[in-house]
Write a protein that binds this DNA or RNA. Structure first.
Lengths: 346, 346
DNA sequence: CATCCGTGTGGGAACGATGTCATAACCCCT
DNA sequence: AGGGGTTATGACATCGTTCCCACACGGATG
C-alpha cells in the first residue's frame, strides 16, 4: 500500500523508481531487483512491477546509475573524418556492434588535429565512458586515456602497439600485393602517392611497396614516392605534377581512397587514358571505384568489420582489463578491375 | 592543512571535489562555488582552490552533475544509415556544430526500422540528453521524446510539423525543378523511381514531380511511378524491369542517391546509353555522380549544413523550450551535368 | 550601543539508482 | 513445537555534485 506521502504524484518530469514502487505497491529495492534482474522477486510481484514500469513509461536514469556504479555503458569512438566513406563505414560497424552489446556510442569527428583529438579524449574521460575506440592522429591519445584507466583500442592506425589493443588491416601485405600486381604486369616505374611514410599505416604501406619492388629486382626511386597532403585537391596537384613530368611513371599506387580520387582526377584532367597510358591501383576500395569508367583496381579493406572487431576487442578488454594487449590484423583482398594493364610499349 | 582523515588518500580512482576541498583547506561548497563561478569566493581562497584542482587533475564527474542538475550536455543524433553519404555528411555537420557549442554527440544508426529507432530513443531519454536530432522513420519518435520533455528536431524528413521543429530541404521545389529540366528538354515520358510517396520527403518529391508534369501539360502516368525498395539491388531490379518494357520512358528521375545508383547500374546492365537513349537525374548529389561517365545531373542538397542547422535549431529550442515550433527549409540547387539531354527522335 | 547589511563560508539535504544488510514469512525436518 | 534453512521484501547508506540556508564576521547606521 502506498504510504501517505506528501510528494506530488506526477511532479513535473519523468517517473522515477520511486513512482514505480508506489504504483506497484512495493519498495524501491524491489523495483530495482526486478528491473536489473539481480536478486529475488516473486512471480506476481515481478509482474506488477513490470506492468507499473511499462505503464509509467519508466526509464532508469543513466546518471544515477552511473554515479552509483562508477562506470557507464557508453563507448567513445574517435574518427578522423566522417565524410570519408572509410571512416563512415568504420563508425557504422562500431555503432551497430556497440548497440548489439548494450553500449551507446559517443562519436566525435576529430579531423586530423591532435588538438581536437585531445579535447575529445578529455570529454570522454569526464563522461566516464567504459572504453574508447580511436583512429589516432598522434601517439598521445592512447597514453592519456590509459593513464586515466580508460580501456582503449586503436583502430586502422596503431601508435601504441604492445601497450594498447589494436585492430588493423594487413597494410604491408596489401601494399605489397598491389605493387606486385603492377610489377607482374611488367611495370618498372611505379609511383607511390601517399600522405606520410613515418608512422603506422603510412609506414607499413610504404614498406610493402618497397618490398614488392625489391622482389621484382627493381630499384626504388625516391622521386616516385610522392608525399601528397590529406585532401583531394592537394593530391590532385601533386599527381598532376608527377604525371606531367618528363619521365612519368607507367603506374601509380595511391595509398588511400582520398589520394586515389586526387590521382584519378589529375589523370582525367591531363587527358591520359587509364590503363593504356597509366595504370592505377588504390589502397582502400571506395564505392566510386567500382562505378567509374574504367573501374579501379583496389585493395579492399572491410572498414565496417574493422569497426565491429574493434568493439569486440574493446568489450573483451573491458571484461579483462589486465590481460596482455592484443593486436588483431584483418585480411585485405586485391580486387583487380579495369584500371591496371601492362605498360604502354616504349 | 589536510584534516587527519582516515579515508585513503588516493583511493582507487579519480579525485573528487572532496579531495580538492581537503587540499585547499576549504569546504566542498566553496570549491563548487569557485569552480562553477556561481556565488562568493574571496581572492586568496579562489586561488588556492584553483591551484589544488589543477594539481590534482580534478575533472568534475559528469554523472554526479547530471544527476543533480537533471540535464546533460549531450545531444542525441539518430540517423538512418551512416554508410549512406547523405547521412554521413549530416552526422558530420551535426557533430562538428555540436562540439563547437560544447555538446557531445551520441550517435545511433537506426537503419530503417522503427523498432531500433524506438529503442535508441529510449536510450537517449535514459541518458537525459539535452535534445535529439532525428531523421525519423516513423511518426512515433518525436512524440515519444517530446512526451518525455526532450527537445526534438526532425531533420530531412518531418512527421510532426507544427508540433516539433524541423530542418528540411526544398523537396517539392527541387523535384519540380529536376522534372521541369527534363520536360524543358522535350521529354514527355518521364519515370519517377522513388521509395514511397505517402510521407514527408517522398510525398513532397512526388508532388513536385507531378506539378512539373502538370505545368508542361503532360498527364501523369501512374505506371511511370516506380516504388522501388530501399536498397540498390531492389532499385536496380525495378529500374531494369521499367527500362526493358515495351514503351520505356525517355527519362528517369531517381528520388535519392541510393535509387539513382540502382537506376544507373540497371542502365549500364541493359547497355543503354546515357543520355542518348535515356536521360537520368537524381535527387541528392552523391560524390560518385560527378565522377562517373557520363556525370549525373542532380539536385544538390547540402547535407552537412542540414546537420549544422539542425544543431543550431536544437540549441535555440533548448534555450527557449516553449517558443513556437519552427521549420527551417534549406535551399537546393539543380546541378546539370552530362546525363540529361533531349529525348531520342522517334 | 543595538541593529542591520554585505560579504564570505560551511552544513546538509537533495538528485535517482543500487546493493548490503536485516528481517519477515514460510516450509521442512526432527 | 522448535530450530534451521530458504524465499522474499524493505530500510538505509552511498555515489559526487549542487545549492539553499544558516551563520559568522566585520563595518556602517540609527
Amino acid at each position: 500500500m502506498t504510504t501517505g506521502r506528501l510528494a506530488p504524484p506526477g511532479r513535473s518530469g519523468r517517473p522515477t523508481i520511486k513512482d514505480v514502487a508506489a504504483a506497484a505497491g512495493v519498495s524501491r529495492s524491489t523495483v530495482s531487483r526486478v528491473l536489473t534482474g539481480r536478486g529475488y522477486a516473486a512471480g506476481p510481484v515481478r509482474e506488477r512491477v513490470l506492468r507499473a514500469a511499462a505503464e509509467l513509461g519508466y526509464v532508469p536514469d543513466v546518471a544515477a546509475r552511473m554515479l552509483k556504479q562508477q562506470v557507464s555503458r557508453s563507448v567513445g569512438v574517435l574518427v578522423s573524418d566522417l565524410r570519408n566513406p572509410f571512416y563512415a563505414e568504420l563508425a557504422a560497424g562500431a555503432g551497430n556492434e556497440a548497440r548489439a552489446r548494450g553500449y551507446t556510442m559517443v562519436l566525435t569527428d576529430t579531423g586530423l588535429s591532435a588538438g581536437t583529438e585531445g579535447e575529445a579524449a578529455e570529454a570522454l574521460v569526464a563522461l566516464r565512458v567504459a572504453g574508447v575506440i580511436v583512429t589516432p592522429n598522434s601517439p598521445a591519445v592512447s597514453g592519456y586515456l590509459s593513464s586515466h584507466g580508460v580501456p582503449v583500442v586503436e583502430v586502422d592506425r596503431q601508435f601504441a602497439a604492445g601497450t594498447t589493443d589494436g585492430v588493423v588491416v594487413g597494410n604491408r601485405v596489401g601494399a605489397r600485393t598491389a605493387t606486385a600486381h603492377l610489377t607482374g604486369l611488367g611495370h618498372r616505374r611505379i609511383a607511390l602517392v601517399i600522405d606520410e611514410t613515418e608512422w603506422t599505416t603510412g609506414y607499413e604501406r610504404h614498406q610493402g611497396y618497397l618490398e614488392a619492388l625489391h622482389a621484382a629486382d627493381l630499384k626504388a626511386d625516391p622521386d616516385l614516392v610522392i608525399a601528397a597532403g590529406w585532401d583531394v585537391a592537394d593530391a590532385r596537384r601533386r599527381a598532376a605534377d608527377l604525371l606531367r613530368g618528363p619521365d612519368r611513371p607507367t603506374a601509380v599506387f595511391a595509398a588511400n581512397n582520398v589520394l586515389a580520387e586526387g590521382v584519378w582526377r589529375a589523370v582525367g584532367e591531363l587527358g591520359l587514358r587509364v590503363p593504356a597510358d597509366v595504370s592505377l591501383v588504390a589502397f582502400d576500395d571506395a564505392p566510386w571505384m567500382s562505378m567509374v569508367s574504367p573501374t579501379l583496381s583496389a585493395v579492399a579493406q572491410d572498414a565496417y568489420n574493422l569497426g565491429v572487431a574493434a568493439v569486440r576487442r574493446l568489450d573483451a578488454r573491458i571484461e579483462l582489463p589486465d590481460a596482455d594487449s592484443v593486436t588483431t590484423v584483418l585480411g585485405v583482398r586485391l580486387v583487380t578491375r579495369e584500371s591496371t594493364a601492362p605498360p604502354p610499349p616504349l
